[in-house]
Amino acid sequence: MENQVHIQAHDHYDHEGSKLGMWLFIFTEFLLFGGLFITYAVYKYMNPVAFHMAAEELSVTVGAINTVILLVSSATIAMSISAMQYNDVKLTKRLLLATILLAIVFLVNKYFEWGAKISHGIYPGSEQLMEVSRGELLFYGLYFFMTGLHALHIIIGVVFIAVVYFKVANGTVHAERYVLLENSGLYWHLVDAIWIFLFPLFYLIT
C-alpha cells in the first residue's frame, strides 16, 4: 500500500508561485495594450490637430466620473483582501459585491457614452466618419477599439470577481488559501491602471 497515493496528492498549493504567474500574465496584458499605445502615439504625432479636435467631442465629466468609480473599486477590492487576511468573511464578501457593483456602474456609463456617439452617427464605418479628416477617423477608431477592449477586460474582471465571491461564500477561498482573491485584485488593479492611461489620452488632450 505504500506505493499507492491518491491522485489528489498531485494538487499542490503554492501561494507565491500563483501570484508570480498572475504578475506574468499582467505583463502580457500591459504589452497587449502597449501595442495600442504605440499606435496611438504614432498617429497622434502624425495628426496632432485632428486628434485635438476629435477629443473635444468627448465628455470630460463622464470620463472623470468613470475614473473615480474605477479608483474607488480598486480600493474596495484591496480592502476585501485585507478583510480576508483578518478572516472577516462577511466584510470580504460585501467589499467584493461593492467592487462588482461599481464595475457595472462603469459599464452603464460607458454604454450611454458610446450610445450618444453612435446616435450622432459616430461609429466605425459610419458615413459621417468617412467624411471627416483621416486623423479624426483614426482617433475615433482608436477610441472605440481601446475603450472597447478595456470594457471587455472590465466584463472579464466582473466574472472573475464573481467567481471569487462564490468561492469565498462556499469556503474554498479562505484566510489560509486566498491567492485567487489576491489574483483577482491584481487583475482588477491592472484594468484600473490601463484606464488611468486611457482617460488623459482620450479625454484630457484637448
Binding site: L32, F33, G34, T39, G125
Partner: peptide, 23 residues
Amino acid sequence: LATPVVGITLLMVIAEKMFQIGF
C-alpha cells in the same frame, strides 16, 4: 513579452477588416 504585441496587431487587423476601424 513578445506574443501580446502580435496578438494586438492581429486583433487590430481583424477589427479593421470586420468593422472598418482605421489602423
